[in-house]
């Protein structure tokens, strides 16, 4: 009788415990950012071997990837047509990546600046209004002064979208009521 009870108890606990196996939940495979015991740096994500060019990533469009023209100087050209969709994308990306320091108007009084980061110059100076588009692209790509580079966070097409939006911001601070189409003027009622 006692053995039967013990056996029964054992079977029951086995049945219950078997549900606690997590082999399928935690499979011995790499998913993004999972650490590795195999590689010395502890990362499962491996750097690309030097000199490798992934298919479709030759990045030989100099203007698009560096903002520089054939003469090696920052270009005034945009590598794509500036459309409303590009501006809207630029606005969205600008508000994510640039506003922490440059603030929504481009005056350079963002939240991080208010917390002690070195204040960036306003976009609305003559110096920055006259810089070519490729210069702004280059600053986003490689950083400038206290500003770190955003090459990893903002992809090239989005950098150009941001450049277009910065141009729109600069225009907005110099605009007069005559720049607004008459049929759109009633939308400005909210501004005081």
């Amino acid at each position: 009788m006692r053995t039967k009870l013990t056996l029964g108890g054992l079977a029951l606990s086995l049945a219950v415990l078997s549900a606690c196996r997590q082999d399928m939940h935690d499979q011995p495979k790499y998913v993004p950012l999972r650490p590795s015991d195999f590689f010395a740096d502890g990362r499962s994500a491996r750097p690309i071997a030097e000199g490798t060019v992934a298919r479709g990533h030759l990045n030989d469009d100099k203007l698009f990837y560096t903002g520089k023209g054939a003469d090696g100087r920052p270009s005034q050209e945009f590598p794509m047509p500036v459309t409303k969709a590009l501006l809207l994308r630029g606005e969205q990306r600008y508000n994510i990546y640039c506003t922490p320091c440059h603030d929504r108007t481009g005056n350079g009084n963002g939240m991080i600046v208010r917390r002690g980061y070195r204040r960036p110059p306003t976009y609305h100076s003559d110096r920055l209004r006259q810089q070519p588009n490729g210069y702004l692209y280059d600053v986003i790509t490689n950083g400038f002064g206290a500003m770190p580079d955003y090459a990893a966070q903002v992809q090239p097409a989005d950098r150009w979208a941001i450049v277009a939006y910065i141009r729109a911001l600069q225009l907005s601070q110099q605009a007069s009521i005559n720049d607004v189409p008459p049929e759109a003027r009633n939308q400005l009622g909210g501004a005081k």
């Binding site: 508000n95 994510i96 990546y97 922490p100 939240m111 991080i112 917390r115 966070q153």
Partner: peptide, 8 residues
């Protein structure tokens, strides 16, 4: 507190 967007 700082209003940093998730995607930053």
């Amino acid at each position: 507190g700082l209003g940093v967007d998730c995607q930053y």
